[in-house]
């Protein structure tokens, strides 16, 4: 579970997040919608510990035993998963696992990649030959391999073709079903509506609206979002 309480963050006297309150339960995908500069990436950076909040409290708790989730159980998938181009998919996963002090057999690594949606034949290919969608899958596999409890995705569907984007949704839903807590920051209203259980609209660092995706259609969500952006 992720819980952000009264979070305020400013950079050079410019407010990036203003009294943000956000709760994402375990086994839930939360979609954070917002324009560029709305504070989506800042929220993710706060959760990753790459920046410090000026005020407020952040809690990341494992709902199973109420224990604090440590940094090594957080998976991060950026907009562009720029892996090492001279390594194959399996070698990248092996490397990122090893630096997290995890050692897997070749079979385990291959299974992880296939579980995360990569074709078995592709696992041996160099990353330089991968499409963006394939790299995203390796990114998810890296988080999955370390048994991440929390997945933070920053614009993961950006630049993906509809098929890959749909595949991504399916993988995230699979992870959700396994009890993971997922925060997905995006511009893509349709993808967020399709993938997420709960949606928040962030405008200039303020969470202006929260809703369950089942309560709105894509059309309604788009209208709502555009209205908030206009005002």
């Amino acid at each position: 579970m992720i819980h952000l309480k009264n979070i305020t963050k400013s950079f050079n006297n410019k407010i990036a997040l203003n009294n943000l309150n956000l709760k994402i339960n375990s086994g839930e995908i939360y979609g954070l919608l917002g324009a560029n500069g709305a504070g989506k990436s800042t929220t993710i950076n706060l959760l990753l510990g790459f920046t410090k909040a000026d005020n407020g409290e952040i809690k990341m708790i494992d709902s199973n035993d109420e224990s604090k989730i440590e940094k090594d159980r957080i998976g991060y998938i950026p907009e562009n998963v720029n892996l090492y181009p001279y390594l194959s998919g399996i070698e990248n996963l092996d490397y990122f696992s090893k630096i997290a002090n995890l050692n897997f057999s070749k079979k385990q690594l291959e299974d992880t990649l296939v579980n995360c949606g990569l074709e078995k034949d592709s696992t041996q290919k160099l990353i330089s030959d991968y499409s963006k969608g394939m790299r995203q899958k390796v990114g998810i596999a890296i988080a999955y391999a370390k048994n991440a409890k929390i997945y933070l995705l920053d614009e993961p569907a950006s630049g993906l073709d509809p098929y890959s984007s749909n595949e991504l949704s399916l993988i995230l839903k699979k992870l959700k079903d396994q009890g993971s807590t997922i925060l997905m920051a995006s511009h893509d209203i349709f993808r967020v509506r399709e993938t997420c259980d709960k949606i928040g609209i962030l405008k200039s660092g303020v969470l202006v609206k929260e809703m369950y995706s089942k309560d709105v259609t894509s059309k309604q969500l788009e209208k709502l979002y555009l209205d908030f952006m206009k005002n």
Partner: peptide
Amino acid sequence: TSGRLKLLIVQGN
């Protein structure tokens, strides 16, 4: 610029 630094740090380095 490649964003790899964040990925490496998130892995616990």
